[in-house]
Amino acid sequence: MDVEAIKKNWLNREFDVAEFPITQERILAYVHACGETDPRFSDPEHPEFQAPPTFTAQYVGRRILPRDFPMLGFRGFDAGKTVVLHGPARPGDTLFAHSKIADAYEKTGRSGRMVFLVHRMEFVNQKDERVSTVDWRMVRQPDQEPEKREK
């Protein structure tokens, strides 16, 4: 696994832009499923009604890796998510998510060898206002069984 080659050839290159319409129904379904009780997110009548802060973390673009990206193994898991909030997402908005690979590194853990890819999505709305930045730390394991996965 040549992580240095990945860093050299693939980092910080936008490879996907995906579009996500924000609807009241979808916000309410998400909020109910995760037990969110704050009326700003659960009550459409609230004057500040908006999507909850982790809402954009659920989205996946049209591709999760660039075309022709090296195969790092079939097995993998989600090692973590970071969401930085810049502005609200409200019903009727359309979000555009710009994707790139922001970092790559190798390490070992309870699961064995792991390659981490940091997949970054920058969300902006239809006015080109920043909404959130979501970093998704994806792990690829060429040689491990899924039941062993622990960091």
């Binding site: 090692a79 973590g80 998510k81 970071t82 909030l85 960091k151």
Partner: peptide, 8 residues
Amino acid sequence: QIDTVFRA
């Protein structure tokens, strides 16, 4: 900002 590490 909210950041989570899914360790297991």
